[in-house]
Amino acid sequence: MQINRKISVIIPCFNGKDFIKDTIHSVLNQTYTNFEVIVVNDGSTDNSVEIVQAFNEERISIIHKENSGVSDSRNLGFKRAKGEFVIFLDADDLLSENFFEAALKTFKEDTSIDFLTVDISNIDENNKPIASEYNYRGTYKNVQNEVVSFKINVSTCPSAYIYRKEQLQKHKIYFNKTLSSPADRYFLLEIGAYLKGGFISDAPLKYRVHPNSMSHLKSKKLVLDQEIFLNHTLQQNILKRSEDVSIFKRKLYYQLFVDFLKLKQPLKAFKYGYHYLTTYINSNN
């Protein structure tokens, strides 16, 4: 294996004091050691920075900026990355200790692969496994279809993916700063449009599930974020197959219909309910 193949680990951090220590340890404990860790401090008001600085590790650097969101943090870290490969690791997730070694082995064996993903197991706030009836994984085949279908066992969490940096640069794929929660999905829709994926079967990600996870906080802001995601995806014509466009519309129209009903915004609920019914009827004709 080539020892000069550096991996850049980009960790966006906003008030991550509870878990970032364990996350960084999961990187430092890797069996492959040629990596850099770029922590992007997104205006944290807790002691996250002090926790990172306490590692006193030359492979760790910190970028400070005012709070501007996770997508902007990931993009800034990516611009500073010096590695041949990049992973966007959330500040509360944990990597298997052989993740880097397994990824580089696969990249070396198949040079046509642009990105890799893994199996995923859920953990709680105390690093204890959370039992599930589903076998979670990232997506690497039929990426756009699996993303727009919102398959329950398919994760879009950035921590579960590692990329050849040059391929992201070549196709100008960055995280959309106008999006928050759906930014992960939009990023993968772009990935699915241009890149070829692969899978690592023996280096699962430990994905943290806790009450403050963004995906678990249903709010007006999150609903409006989904609305922007819908409109932006359709306007940019990013989906390559008409079947996936239809699936995407049905899924988002219905979800927005339900969400706006819950928010007691009947006009918007009616709008998306009407769009859903029209799309559903057309797809069955």
Rank of each mutant, 00 (worst) to 15 (best):
N4C: 01
R5H: 09
R5V: 12
K6S: 00
V9I: 05
I11R: 00
P12T: 12
C13T: 03
N15P: 03
N15T: 04
D18H: 02
K21A: 07
K21R: 07
K21H: 03
T23E: 08
I24C: 00
V27P: 06
L28G: 08
L28Q: 02
N34K: 04
F35L: 03
N41Y: 11
D42I: 06
G43S: 04
D46R: 08
D46H: 02
S48D: 06
V49T: 11
V49S: 11
V52K: 02
A54G: 01
R59F: 09
R59N: 15
I60C: 02
I63G: 11
S68A: 02
V70W: 10
V70P: 09
R74T: 13
L76T: 15
G77V: 05
G77D: 06
K82Q: 04
G83F: 00
F85K: 01
F85N: 05
I87K: 05
L94F: 10
L95W: 09
S96A: 12
E101G: 10
E101S: 13
A103D: 04
E109F: 04
D110S: 12
V118E: 04
I120D: 06
N126K: 14
I130H: 06
E133G: 05
E133S: 07
Y134V: 08
N135D: 09
R137V: 09
Y140P: 08
N142G: 00
V143K: 02
V147K: 07
N153R: 06
N153Y: 10
N153A: 15
T156C: 06
S159D: 03
R164D: 05
Q167E: 08
L168T: 01
Q169L: 14
N176Q: 01
L179W: 01
L179Y: 06
D184A: 11
Y186C: 00
F187R: 03
L189F: 01
E190W: 00
G192E: 10
A193T: 13
L195W: 03
I200K: 03
P204A: 14
P204C: 09
K206N: 08
K206V: 08
V209P: 00
P211D: 05
S213A: 01
S213V: 08
H216A: 15
K218F: 15
S219H: 13
S219F: 09
K221P: 01
D225A: 12
I228V: 08
F229W: 12
N231P: 07
T233C: 01
T233H: 09
Q235H: 04
Q236P: 03
N237M: 13
K240Q: 15
S246C: 14
K251A: 15
K251G: 09
L252P: 04
F260I: 08
F260Y: 14
L261Y: 12
L261W: 14
K262F: 12
K262S: 15
L263H: 15
L263N: 14
K268S: 07
Y272L: 15
G273V: 01
Y274I: 07
Y274C: 08
H275Y: 10
L277A: 15
T278D: 15
N282Q: 11
N282G: 12
